[in-house]
């Protein structure tokens, strides 16, 4: 696996790294009827970036990352319903709420590893789901939370029925998230996360506060997941229980793995390919779709651990050697 970051990496933004943004801008003009799907993809890319931070870089395997996504979604929704539909405030609240939950749960569960950790992430998500399901007065329970409206962004850009504003809003937030994650990955902190993942024993032996690093990474990741959740709430003006579901965590892992774990752009490619394919196939051939997803996971694990980007990397390397 190749990883970005470290002390001899060139941290400047390469030309190719602007491609996704050009592509996203082109989509805005070329596919106006797909903007709703586009917004969802952009949101999921933020969510995938947040997972990549702890899974790909930190090596923390979690089956429960939707806990933080869902928390952000519900915080933003409840805020909009009860207090104010101010969008940026909603994003901030969702991010902070999920970040706090991430901090507290991280402090507690990151003392363990292996099966216990896996189980704890799962149990926490299930718990959040159960709470949201039962606290109907606050969350709307199984009916979901709706009936709120989001004010114009900065008082200027109101959400339109074609999803244009929503798309651009998501794009800007994604850009900011990408920039932050990229900074983090190339920083000494990012390097030390790689160290924790690569060799925990050695990390202790060089005097690194491993537990603390993992908690910090976990908190940042949770906050970012919350941001994505809040964004989903605002662009769809609805929160359903599924934002806290184990299925969403599972789907997210699939997307990230498909794109390539431990590389920033894996989190871009995975959700794009997965969600576009899902849009085409899932409704028409649901059984085959799920079978295909499963088979893809098995194949990736057996033959292509770097995902799509890994395959492309290998292809380029072969071409170079060939010429």
């Amino acid at each position: 696996m190749t990883h970005a970051g470290g002390y001899i990496a060139d941290a400047r933004i390469r030309a190719a790294e602007w491609l996704p943004w050009v592509f996203a801008a082109l989509c805005y003009f070329a596919a106006p009827s797909y903007l709703t799907l586009g917004s969802y993809i952009l949101t999921m890319i933020i969510f995938a970036l947040s997972l990549d931070l702890i899974l790909g870089y930190g090596g923390i395997i979690t089956l429960g990352h939707s806990a933080y996504f869902g928390t952000g979604a519900y915080v933003a929704g409840i805020l909009a319903l009860r207090l104010t539909g101010e969008p940026l405030l909603g994003l901030l609240a969702g991010t902070l709420g999920a970040g706090l939950l991430g901090l507290f749960t991280g402090l507690v569960i990151l003392r363990t590893r292996g099966l216990a950790l896996l189980m704890l992430t799962l149990a926490i998500t299930s718990l959040c789901y159960e709470v949201a399901n039962r606290a109907t007065r606050l969350t709307g329970g199984a009916d979901g939370l709706g009936g709120f409206s989001i004010r114009p962004i900065l008082g200027l850009f109101s959400f339109d029925m074609f999803g244009k504003t929503a798309y651009l809003y998501c794009l800007v937030i994604l850009f900011a998230s990408w920039w932050l994650v990229r900074r983090l990955v190339y920083s000494p902190f990012g390097a030390s996360l790689t160290g924790v993942r690569e060799n925990n024993v050695r990390m202790h032996a060089i005097g690194a506060p491993v537990y603390q690093r993992r908690v910090v990474a976990y908190t940042i990741s949770a906050a970012l997941a919350g941001l994505a959740g809040a964004l989903l709430t605002q662009t769809t003006q609805f929160v359903g229980l599924n934002v806290l579901g184990f299925e969403l965590s599972g789907e997210l892992i699939v997307m990230l793995v498909l794109g390539g774990v431990g590389r920033i752009y894996g989190a871009f490619v995975g959700p794009l390919v997965y969600l576009v394919a899902q849009d085409y196939l899932a409704k028409r051939f649901p059984e085959y779709w799920y079978f295909g997803i499963g088979a893809m996971l098995v194949l990736v694990v057996m033959f292509a651990r770097g995902g799509i980007l890994g395959i492309i990397d290998a292809g380029i390397a072969r071409l170079r050697r060939g010429s």
Partner: peptide, 19 residues
């Protein structure tokens, strides 16, 4: 460098590139 950075207290910095 991971070891040197830990010793120097640099390793927890989050913003500037490691390089």
């Amino acid at each position: 460098a991971f070891a040197v950075a830990e010793r120097e207290g640099v390793a927890r910095r989050m913003f500037r590139p490691a390089g």
